[in-house]
Amino acid sequence: MKKNIATISPGFEDIMPEEYQDLVNDGPYGRGLGIKNLGTFKELIEEHPLCAGCGLALAIRLTAASLPAPEDTIIVGTTGCNSILMPQLAIHNIHSLFGNQSSLAAGLKRALKLRYPDKNKDVVVMAGDGGIADIGLSPTLHTWLRRENLTTIMLDNESYSNTGGQESGMSCEGAVLNMAPTGKKFPKIPMPEIAKDSGCAYVATVSVANARRLGRMVKRAILVAREIGPTYLQIFVPCPTNYKFSTSETLKRAKEREKIMEYISSEAEKLIKEANI
């Protein structure tokens, strides 16, 4: 959807709700905006139903603001806290069966390549740690091993949060949650290392507290996936509801535990340098 297609049919401009008029007249479609422009354009999310202080909601907001081409992006998500918010984004998005998001996204990307051979259509898998590292690990790995042109973004809140707080593979060893009262017995899954070893051309980790860097990483991950092969971005998004801290402490927690890592293959490095991002 190019900006000139996101046009209201003549005669209906006045009856369209203000939100849609704003999206058409002042939205990010086709304008190459980013996080530094937040506050100056109509964002792709109006409001959201997630908990107060939710790190995941902020990560989706920042990611949506960083997409290099939101009008040509399809987000594929799966069950989790994110799936409550995702349908409200003014971006094409698909909710898959739990864990099936990467398989669906791979098929979609291949179909889009055939249907629009001259256009870049970015397919971004955005899901929680349970969806990517536990239930959907096999499809995730196989899309990486097959070198599919997909960006995978994990919103890592280190638990199954909207089902009451079960431990996930991404919870840290010893983590105590509502439904893991004796503490987790094994370490956090090393997904960045797995992604690198499975063939991702770009792998990065960041927290939601580092907005500018997060935005840059989103752009890099999508550009590399578009031109070279699979990419993986892991965003740490603390959950005040299940980890039982004050809603005002989300960013503090994110900063304290943030691990910034960026692996860029030599081919990807060249591309990123040329694109100057």
Binding site: M16, P17, E47, H48, P49, P87, Q88, A90
Partner: peptide
């Protein structure tokens, strides 16, 4: 009169029924 259905997104907390 005309009230539009511009897309199918669920809206939070709710739509404005006067205009959508």
């Amino acid at each position: 009169k005309i009230i539009p259905m511009p897309d199918y997104r669920p809206k939070y907390p709710m739509i404005n029924p006067e205009e959508e």
